[in-house]
Design a protein around this nucleic acid. Sequence first.
DNA 1: CATACAAATGAACATTTATTCATATGTTTA
DNA 2: TAAACATATGAATAAATGTTCATTTGTATG
Lengths: 96, 96
Amino acid sequence: MTEERENELYDLAELFKVFGDSTRIRILFALMGRDFSVNDLAAELQMTQSAVSHQLKILRQSKLVSARREGKSMIYFPADDHVRTIIEMGMEHIEE
Amino acid sequence: MTEERENELYDLAELFKVFGDSTRIRILFALMGRDFSVNDLAAELQMTQSAVSHQLKILRQSKLVSARREGKSMIYFPADDHVRTIIEMGMEHIEE
DNA sequence: CATACAAATGAACATTTATTCATATGTTTA
DNA sequence: TAAACATATGAATAAATGTTCATTTGTATG
């Protein structure tokens, strides 16, 4: 196996690791429905603002979500269609 | 969000967690090429037989790989096409 | 049936990681 | 500009997880 391939697989594992946490998956799923501020997300998921913010940071770093500022709030939304595609793909495997 | 949906998302995170480890991804990728015995996989990935066997157990439990016996060896192979689809999907996101 | 080979398993250890708590940063508005 | 609101961040803690080591289980064969 080439070193390049090895690295690719390593990156791939890193990507799936991001999806492999129920808090982050729930965040992504919520954002598939509509945009959310951090506080609203925390309320929706019944989690602390801090916990949600920490996970949003990871999602941002992975380029899975983006944010825009609206007044005092930061509004988060999916970065692109890959989020939806990957989640729907996983769902298909689950529902069997 | 319905309780059923919550559970579904939890299962989804569990599925992605399995893909979210470089050893397991490398195993899956190798098996996409051809079937392997445990020892051969260990040699291919340069890992101990034990480490590989432990990870294969997790992959078996997740129904991502299956195995057949051939003499003294256990030959592992992908359980179905989902493995390939999910990995290829992830690759697409990476290559951007 | 004893030995050799292949794989699986359990416990221990080290590492990673998610959450909490306290606090800092940034923005609006009275 | 002070106060209130919203988010981000750092350190600490607890829990989860991957690998190693030693050993067991299962199969073939001399």
